[in-house]
Simulated assay, not measured.
Amino acid sequence: MEFCDDCGSMMKTEGDEWICGSCGFTKIRDEAKEAAMVTTEGQTESEIVDISDAEDQGLPTTNAACPECDNDRAHWYMQQIRAADESETRFFICTECEHKWREDDH
């Protein structure tokens, strides 16, 4: 991938040149530099590992009363579920029964 020296936009290749679609700036392609670039074509997929039954969920824990089993510890995470100008919602997962609830649930 190459970026325009003039405007910073991403450039495309056409023949032996890089051409900026925004401002029209062109420069000659450098084969040695392009050979060193990492492309998605050269990458391999890694194996998908199922961690759904893992003991440690990798999430931080806090004091929170589970509405299902009254346990006082829960993992938590934040997630944007509304518009970008709205605040994130905090979700909890009980460390005992794995019940999931969100902060504004009553």
Rank of each mutant, 00 (worst) to 15 (best):
A64W: 09
A65P: 00
A65H: 11
C66H: 08
C66Y: 06
C66E: 05
C66M: 01
P67Q: 14
P67H: 11
P67Y: 12
P67L: 13
E68D: 15
E68W: 10
E68T: 15
E68R: 08
D70W: 06
D70T: 15
D70Q: 09
D70K: 05
D70S: 12
D70R: 03
N71R: 05
N71I: 09
N71S: 12
N71Q: 14
D72Q: 05
R73D: 07
R73V: 02
R73T: 03
R73L: 01
R73N: 04
R73Y: 06
A74L: 07
A74H: 01
H75T: 13
H75V: 02
H75S: 13
H75W: 15
H75Q: 12
H75Y: 13
W76G: 02
W76T: 04
W76K: 08
W76F: 15
W76P: 01
Y77V: 10
Y77G: 11
Y77A: 04
M78N: 13
M78E: 14
Q79C: 11
Q79A: 14
Q79I: 08
Q80Y: 06
Q80E: 07
Q80G: 03
I81M: 15
I81S: 14
I81G: 07
I81E: 10
A83R: 12
A83S: 14
A84C: 05
A84P: 00
A84V: 09
A84W: 03
A84H: 00
A84N: 04
D85C: 09
D85P: 01
D85N: 02
E86R: 03
E86W: 10
S87P: 10
S87Q: 02
S87C: 11
S87V: 11
T89Y: 01
R90P: 04
R90W: 00
F91Q: 08
F91K: 07
F91W: 06
F92H: 00
F92D: 00
I93V: 13
I93E: 04
C94N: 09
T95K: 00
T95S: 01
T95P: 00
T95A: 07
E96M: 01
E96N: 03
C97N: 11
E98A: 07
E98H: 11
E98L: 12
E98V: 04
E98Q: 11
H99C: 00
H99K: 04
H99G: 03
H99T: 03
H99M: 00
H99L: 02
K100Q: 14
K100H: 09
K100S: 04
K100M: 00
K100R: 14
K100W: 08
W101L: 02
W101Q: 07
W101A: 09
